[in-house]
Design a protein around this nucleic acid. Sequence first.
RNA 1: GGCGAGGUAGCAAAGUGGUAAUGCACUGGUCUGCAAAACCGGUAUGCGCGGGUUCAAUUCCCGCCCUCGCCUCCA
Length: 468
Amino acid sequence: MPALKLHDTLTRTDRETTPLDGKTLRFYCCGPTVYGPAHIGNFRTFVAQDVMRRVVEASGTPTLHVRNITDVDDKTIRDSQKAGQTLTAFTQGWTQKFHTDCAALNLLPPHIEPSAVAHISQQVAMIEKLIAGGHAYAAPDGSVYFRVSSYKDYGKLSHLEDRELRLGASEAASATDSDEYTKDSLTDFALWKARKPEDGENFWPSPWGEGRPGWHLECSAMILEYLGEDFDLHSGGVDLIFPHHENEIAQSCCSTHGHFAHHWMHVAHLMVDGGKMSKSIGNLYTLEDLAQRGYSAMEVRYVLISGHYRAPLNFTMHSLDSARQALQKLAKADKALATVSPALPEAKSAGPFQEAWETLLNDLNVPGATGAIFGVLNKLKPAALSAEEATAARNGLHFMLQALGLTLPVLADEAATDVPADIQALAQQRWDAKQAKDWAAADTLRKELEAAGWLIKDSKEGFTVVAK
RNA sequence: GGCGAGGUAGCAAAGUGGUAAUGCACUGGUCUGCAAAACCGGUAUGCGCGGGUUCAAUUCCCGCCCUCGCCUCCA
């Protein structure tokens, strides 16, 4: 099978994702900082990465997926103290919540999920190498900084080479910040942060004194540990391009002989009601928020993949309704095929959905692929298909669903929900009225049932009651 | 100011040098006492604006306008 072609942020071209070792696609995703529940914007990135992984695997290439947990930084320390918990207890709680949400969204768990706190020694070792190589220096207060001027390719990914010449207003302001005075250059960034009183019990020993690692360093150190000096692909949200990924490249390339990531995937941001998500506007939704409004995680997933991952996507409540209907439509199509081909679908190849599959291989064009799926489905007449044709179609449909990570909702009329006796009695009353051609009474009863949340479906032989 | 991503029907969102997938919504029909469900249809002469190239541009080129993001922690 042909390999996935994926846009590469560094070269700004679409390139095939062929494993360096010819076998396994080894990739790293910047994971969550666990100081609260992740919101749907965070999940857009993780869902896009999940689709990427699924497509690679569906095309026959195994993956090695590493995604970190950031469990030490200003926010985790600050909020754990507010919560009156140890950093470990606090971050473990939110890590668990993250895992629950990931499972609900049908995200494949990473093969390795390293925590920053568990890799302090690797981070210290990397700093030592950087200092030895003249790429880093310890400041008088015990902090260690990376010397950006020592790495000539700095800025290559974000195309901010001449950044120092064009310092933004906010940065000029921070130059006077007492926190920054020990740096040789404004652009140098912290590898190690000297212990401060507000860090509480959260510090570790190092050759430069007690302190904690800088945020950028953890990814570099854990990548080296689990993926080595060269690996296939690195992914994250667009906002990480600068400075986070730029800094990772600098740290890693200056402390090893490798080329670090050979391919960069960045996922565009999710917007809400046309604007940026922010706590102050109150449009930061979590899965729990949406569950309270009656939307399933799978419906959220559908929305999150309904736009191309490199274009901003606007999230609205209406888009969730739309997703619900789309998923229902897929479930109904599957059900219709299942009447001709009842066996468990195998999902090994795209079958009649080849066009959709190829669209997906072209830089993960999910909206194009789902469009192609519906296009085929709309023309398909399950009843007219032979058992073989139906089986091929059903297998193909499930192959695509698996690649997209979609699971089908249970249709209302299959849900076997218990209809309360009083509802059932009302429905029977209505049926009787209908048989007696007392249309007014029948309609009144139907409205009553609808108000109670139940729908009536009539057929020649009788009726069924279905939850609304 | 620099870098980047976008502007396509009511909403969302693909795509192509030859006159626009798909989902939702809306709507016509079949069916039904009427509905629902199902099935069969319809719905952008138009793809931010202005030029240019071309037999032909929404699609290429130039300019402009607007939106969003990054340049400080951020998926």
